[in-house]
Simulated scan of single mutants.
Amino acid sequence: MAGRVVVVTGASGGIGRAVVRELARRGDRVALLARGEAGLAAAAAEVAEHGGEALVVPVDVSDAEAVDAAAGQVEDRLGPIDVWVNVAFTSVFARFGDITPEEYRRVTEVTYLGYVYGTMAALRRMKLRDRGTIVQVGSALAYRGVPLQTAYCGAKHAIQGFHESLRTELLHDRSGIRVTMVQLPAVNTPQFGWVRSKLPQKAQPVPPIYQPEVAARGILHAVDHPGRREWWVGGSTVGTLLGNAVAPALLDRYLARTGFDDQQVDEPEVAGRPDNLFAPLDGDDGHDFGAHGTFDDRSASRSLQQWLSHRAGPLAAGAGVVVAGGVAALVGARRR
């Protein structure tokens, strides 16, 4: 499956950056879409180091015309788009009453509409060939809202509904285009230091925390297996989604009690620090944030749930053999 043309939004840092590295290792031609030019340049260099081919396209995904133009540039330079991965987002850590309408609009335009515009641009070209894959990178928060992240959770819920509706339309049309979604756990990315925060203490992901490479492996698996409507990554994601399905009201009360402290470290936030809500943070000093945040010492680089999920077919077949063997042995024993 190597050698495909893959577009990744939010490619300059965090999860998008980790995805780009994995794609490069297997020889894909990768289009890097994001705002931060220093991060884009560093990501392109990593693609080259790993033997891939990169095309840098600076773009703000909240601009529909710019995203469509970027898709056209990709096809002109790299060839027909095989895969489009939507990752780009922004957010505001704050109580709902402390978020301004302008901030809410911006988070929604980037985190939700950015996915819509990317999907539009990809479909416009994939439909001509009746093939292609679109991956929406989601979160456990696409199902389960948490305090202090109303703008982000609202956008992720919107992506989930959008994804399901689009999937049903493509199934109705018997389309050769596949869409799938990947629900992620808390991940150690630079976002906790670059998104806008109005919290008294510095923000943190809710443990357990996973490294971006775990998320990237989950996303690449979805790229290669797009027939499934969605993939879950991490035991905490499974627990959250199942718990929310069974006892959402109980989870409401649990998060009301724990969700404020669990999302903050015991270190004061710097009032008025720069953030990436309206402009990339690497614009002035050319700083590359990379894929990892500041929680390496608390983050897992492996997920047993992911390993099992990616091998569900062989494991299920193996379990079937064991069960069949047990039944046969039992029948044989009774006959004797």
Rank of each mutant, 00 (worst) to 15 (best):
L281Q: 07
C153T: 08
R336H: 14
R129F: 10
A88W: 01
V187W: 13
Y104P: 04
L141C: 14
L32I: 03
G16P: 03
I81T: 05
D296T: 06
P248A: 01
V233R: 01
F295R: 00
L199D: 09
G51R: 03
I159P: 11
V270L: 09
A11W: 13
V331T: 02
Q305C: 06
I99Y: 12
P314V: 02
A256Y: 01
A42D: 09
A279S: 15
V59D: 07
P280K: 00
H292R: 05
E37T: 00
E230C: 06
N86R: 13
L251M: 06
V146P: 15
L220V: 07
F162E: 07
V59H: 08
V56G: 06
S301V: 05
V59T: 05
G114S: 04
P314L: 05
G326S: 05
Q136S: 09
L308V: 06
Q204Y: 15
A69I: 12
H292K: 11
R131E: 08
A222Q: 03
Y210C: 13
A66Y: 08
V116L: 05
G313M: 08
L281E: 05
Q201I: 13
G16C: 01
D224F: 10
T294H: 01
L304F: 15
D60Y: 11
I219M: 04
P200I: 09
F96W: 14
Q204H: 14
R229G: 06
T237E: 00
V85W: 11
L315F: 14
R77I: 15
L55V: 07
P268G: 03
A329K: 08
L78H: 08
L241Y: 14
T180K: 13
A291C: 01
D285C: 05
G10Q: 03
R253A: 11
L128G: 11
L304K: 09
R129L: 08
E65L: 11
Y117A: 02
T180C: 13
R95E: 03
Q264M: 08
Y104V: 03
A247C: 12
H310L: 08
G97D: 01
E102R: 12
A186K: 11
V323G: 03
R4W: 12
T180Q: 11
R35G: 01
Y254C: 02
Y152R: 04
R334N: 11
T237Q: 00
A31E: 01
P205S: 10
K198A: 04
F89C: 04
D297G: 06
D252E: 00
V331L: 08
T90F: 14
R29E: 02
E22S: 04
L170W: 07
V187L: 07
P226H: 08
A247I: 05
S309G: 08
A94M: 13
R144Q: 15
L33Q: 00
G235H: 00
E267I: 01
R124Y: 11
V195R: 04
A45G: 09
V146I: 12
A215M: 12
A45P: 10
T90C: 11
F162T: 05
M181N: 14
M181T: 11
A256L: 04
Y112N: 06
R17C: 07
P207F: 05
T294F: 13
V195G: 10
G286I: 02
A69H: 13
A328N: 06
M126G: 07
K202E: 15
R217Y: 12
E267K: 06
A291S: 04
E269S: 09
